[in-house]
Structures are given as structure tokens and as C-alpha cells.
Design a protein around this nucleic acid. Structure first.
Lengths: 178, 178
DNA sequence: TCGATCATGTAATTGGTTACATGATTGC
DNA sequence: GCAATCATGTAACCAATTACATGATCGA
């Protein structure tokens, strides 16, 4: 699923501006990377040219004017097509695992410090996700709530892996008489 | 960690060609995306120009000539610096979760089919990883083996999530009297 | 004879991010 | 007075993939 399809997906529910779309995305997908305006606005322009969405200008005073986009019938078809398009499992990337792979080149204290720091980051994100729960519960349908739970579990499991890693690093130092 | 640092990491162990490096990477990081020649060869050229690696041409007959790269002292320093450089947790991306997010727009049978297909992909990768175990055990140091185990666990957990999802999808259909 | 393995490389394209540019209003 | 929120956009840049180009040898 590319940026276009995701934006269309949000527009299936209601008409929105580029600014609104960015917010909707970042609330819905807190547990993974966001979308920048540098990809949203060009995508909206392109889809308007292709007749997938239509634009309505809302003049506001006391605030900047808004360009509200509404999905068209062609846009709905395009969205459903992309939702059904063949799907290939994508392999994840993990900078953390890349570093772990080369851990032998670091002294033990640095290994421990690095792992602890990583655990902190994970816990922080987990807390952030947890605190967004009310917001999510207010707007999500059951599948969207499942997504949110996937996110929480993912961080819970990651936290588990890294905690164990820290234990392992501790044990090996005791074995080495540190 | 960028491409350069990873290549340097492998060269810390022994001198290799671009071709060898691609293989080493894909065996070591089976559980996540590979490196293409389109990024390896330019990176090697760049690092040679920067004096991080040196090249030796090996003339072979009956096979193409090889350019064997060896890490220099400057390269070793650069590698260690990058291993210690500040690390930011990177948020994952998941096309699967993006689709799940919009599942309400698909009829129940398609939801189930899609989830089952996803589970199959995961199980396939898991089997592939498992079958690579001997190869990994033969060459990996203890941190590299931990990486491998992280990969296995990751796929095991993913498999668990998606299996549960499939159950959930089944139950809701029974509730709806399907 | 056909596909795999060995081996190197470039050019075009993709799919983004980051930084820049602008500017009013509201709440602390 | 300062930061945050609302709101839109462009240009430069980056890191990578894919497709293309070449060509020998070996095993089934």
C-alpha cells in the first residue's frame, strides 16, 4: 500500500484536508513511522489530476484557508483495487539487530549500555502508545483497534527480547569474572 | 547503520569481493531485507576513494576476475565510530497492518483469505530461517547467533498474532450467523 | 541446452525525507 | 512575548531498488 491508497482509505470515511490527513495518520499509526507533508501534498495534487478526489476551498477568517478533499467514485474503486492487490510479505529492517550483529567489536560495558538505552526507547514508545488508547478507542472500528493492539504487543515483545538480551550480557560477564 | 558500515563490519572479519559481501549479508540477515549490487558496488568504490578499504585484483581463469577488498586502519576506525554513533529507535513499517486497518471495506471471506495468505508467507519464511540454522551455527559468533534467534522469535510471534487474528475473524462471523 | 553460479558494474527510477518559505491566531 | 496550532506548499536531497549490460563455466 502506497501513500495514495492510505490517503484514499482515510477519505473513505470523511472529507479532509492534507493537514487533517497527516494528523489522522499519525494517531492511527503511532507505532510506526509517519507521513510528511512532502509526500502528502504532492500525492493529493496527483490524485486530484487523476480524478480520484475533488477539492473544495473553504475560506476561513482568523485561520488559513483549507482545501478539503473528497473521494470520488473513481477514487473509491482505486482504493478497493489497491486493498485487494497482491500482497507480498515485506521483510523488516532493524538497525538494532545490525548493531547487535557486530557487538563482539564493543567492550562489555558499552554493549550493556547500548542494550539498556534501546530498552528505554522501546519502553518510552510503549508508554506513548498506551497513553493514546482513549483517543484510539474513541475513533477506531474493530479492525483498527486490532491494529493498535498489534502495535502494543509488538512493543511488549520487543521489550521482552531486549530485557533478555540484557540478562544474557550480564551473565556472560559474571562467567568471565567481571 | 548505513550500507558502508555494514560492509566494513563484514570486512573486519576477512577480505572479500562485492559478490561475497552480498552473500554474507543475505545469509546473516535472512530474516530481513537484503542488499543489492546497486548499493554495494558504489559503496565499495566510495570507500576505496576515502581510503577505508584497499583493492587487490585477483586474476582467475575459467572464472571472472575478482576484486578483493581489505579494510584499512582508517576503515576500522570508521567502523568502530559508526558502531558507537548515537542510535535512534526506528519505527517499523508494516503493509500488513495498513491493510488490516482498512479491513472493514472488505467482505469477510476476503478478510479471512488475506489473513491466511499472510500466515502462509510468515510460516514459509520461518521454515526457511530454520533450515538455515546449520549454516548460521557454523559461522556465527554468540552475538550473531542471538541475532538469528531474534529473527526466529520475531517470526514465531508474528505467526502467533496472525493466527489469533484468523480466529477472531472466524468468531465474529459465527456471531453474525454466517 | 538450459539454468545456476561466479563476477562486475551503470542508469533510470522510485519513494520518500528535510529544510525552507509564509503567516495569522490563541493560550500561557 | 513565546510557543503551539492551524494550514499549504516547493526544492533539494538521499538512499535505495530495478532493470539493463556482459560473459564464462559447470552440472543435470
Amino acid at each position: 500500500m502506497d501513500v495514495q491508497s492510505v490517503l484514499l482509505g482515510f477519505l473513505m470515511k470523511k472529507s479532509m484536508t492534507g493537514y487533517d490527513l497527516k494528523k489522522a495518520f499519525s494517531i492511527s499509526f503511532l507505532f510506526f513511522s509517519g507521513l510528511s507533508y512532502g509526500s502528502i501534498y504532492p500525492a493529493l495534487r496527483k490524485m486530484e489530476n487523476q480524478g480520484m478526489i475533488s477539492k473544495r476551498l473553504e475560506i476561513q477568517d482568523g485561520a488559513p484557508n483549507r482545501k478539503v478533499y473528497t473521494i470520488t467514485e473513481a477514487g473509491k474503486r482505486a482504493f478497493l483495487d489497491s486493498l485487494r492487490s497482491p500482497f507480498a510479505f515485506e521483510l523488516p529492517k532493524s538497525t538494532f539487530l545490525m548493531r547487535l550483529f557486530f557487538f563482539a567489536h564493543l567492550p562489555p560495558e558499552e554493549r550493556r549500555a547500548f542494550a539498556r538505552q534501546h530498552l528505554d526507547s522501546i519502553e518510552q514508545l510503549r508508554a506513548q502508545l498506551e497513553s493514546a488508547r482513549p483517543e484510539v478507542e474513541a475513533h477506531a472500528d474493530r479492525f483498527q483497534y486490532l491494529c493498535f493492539q498489534f502495535g502494543l504487543r509488538f512493543y511488549r515483545d520487543m521489550s521482552g527480547y531486549v530485557s533478555e538480551l540484557i540478562d544474557t550480557l550480564g551473565v556472560e560477564e559474571i562467567e568471565n569474572g567481571e
